[in-house]
Amino acid sequence: RSGPAQARLSTASTAAAPEDAGSIRTTFYEQGSGDGYIPAGTGSIKNSTSLADSQVADIISRGMPFGIELHSDEPQVLIMHTHATETYELADNGWYDPDFTCRSTDNAVNMTAVGAEMARVLNAAGINTVQDTTLHDYPSYNGSYERSNETVRGWLEKYPSIKVVLDVHRDAIEQEDGTRLKPTLQTEEGPAAQVMIICGADKGGNLPNYTQNLRFAAAWEAAMEAQTPGLTRPVMFAYRYYNQDLTTGSLLIEVGGHANTLDEAVRAGGLAARALASLLAQTA
C-alpha cells in the first residue's frame, strides 16, 4: 500500500479509557451452508426472500450480466455514499467512547476515505472509476436515499458509460449488553474488516432487473473469497431497495462496522476493489 491512504492508517493507542467506556469484541463471520444459503464460489448468499434456493442458484449460475471497457476514456464505475458521514474507531483502543457518535463530516475519516481507496485500486487496474463524495446524510439523515438517488441519476445522465454503481457503507453491530462487534480477518497486509454485499430483490415491481444485480453480487462475492478467503460475510439477498433499480450493476457493500478501525476498513475496501478489478477485467 502507498499514497494518501497509508497516512490515514490508525495504530494502537495508549489512551486511557473513560469510566463509561464500552467493550469491543473482535469476531469473524463464517460462510453459511444448508437451507437458506446458496454457494457463490467459496462464498455464500443468504436467501431472505420467498424465492426457492434452487431459483437463486439458477439465477447466479448465469454469470456476470454485463461487461466493462478497460482503459476507457469514459467512467465505467461510480462509487458513492448515501451515508457518507459514517465512520469508524480512529484508534485501536479495544474499547469505545460512548460519546463518540461514529459520524464525521471529515472526508479523511468517513466512508469517503474507504471509497477513495476502492477508486484508487480500480483506476490503477485500468477501470475508469469516479467517486462522488456528497454528504447525502448531512445535515439531515432523513431523506438520504432520495438525495443519493438524484446524485446517481445525474452521474448516469452525464456518463451513460457507467455500468457499476457501488453504495459504500459500514455496518453497526452491537449486542444487547452494549458490546460492539468488529468483524475482522487477518491478511498478509494486516487486519482487515469483513465486508458484506447487500442485494435487493423485487417487491411489487420496484426492482424489475434485480436478477442482474444478483448475478453481479454472486460473481463479486466469489471473486473476493477466491483472492482473500474470509474477507466476506454472506451476501444479504433480501427485500431491500437502496436505489438498486438505477443500473443492473447496482449494489450496496458494508465495509466492516462501527467498532472496526479506519485502517481495517480502508484495507478491506482495497481488497474488495482488487477482487472487483479482476472480475471486471475478465468481462472486458
Rank of each mutant, 00 (worst) to 15 (best):
Y88N: 03
G204N: 11
G204A: 10
P183L: 11
H71S: 10
D167F: 05
R153M: 14
V77E: 02
K158T: 15
I173V: 15
C199V: 11
G269Q: 01
G43E: 01
G41R: 02
T261K: 05
Q282L: 13
N260I: 05
G94W: 05
G204D: 09
R8E: 11
Q31W: 08
L251F: 03
T232G: 05
S278M: 09
M224D: 00
S33W: 06
A219N: 02
G178I: 13
E117H: 14
D99T: 15
I38D: 00
R1K: 12
R180L: 12
P39Q: 03
I60M: 04
T151C: 14
Q6L: 14
M224N: 07
S144I: 06
A281Q: 13
G94L: 11
G63Q: 08
D20F: 10
Y96H: 10
P208A: 14
R170S: 08
R25M: 14
T187L: 09
M118Q: 10
G257N: 12
A277Q: 02
T133C: 13
V235Y: 00
I173R: 14
S2W: 10
G94E: 09
P4T: 11
V255Y: 01
E189G: 08
Y239E: 06
A217P: 03
L214C: 08
K46S: 15
A222D: 00
D97V: 10
T26H: 04
V168S: 03
A259Y: 03
L181Q: 10
S104L: 08
T101H: 02
M80S: 11
R147N: 12
D99W: 13
L51D: 09
L185S: 09
A5F: 05
T27F: 08
F216P: 02
T85C: 08
T283S: 15
L231A: 03
T179Y: 04
A275W: 00
L122R: 01
Q282D: 12
L251T: 01
R170E: 03
G143M: 08
R120D: 04
G115P: 02
R233P: 03
S2L: 13
S140V: 14
G249N: 04
Q282I: 03
V77M: 10
L51F: 07
R120S: 04
D53T: 06
A218F: 04
Y241K: 13
E146D: 15
T179R: 04
Q175I: 12
D99H: 15
A201H: 09
T232E: 04
E89A: 09
L135E: 05
A124L: 06
R25L: 15
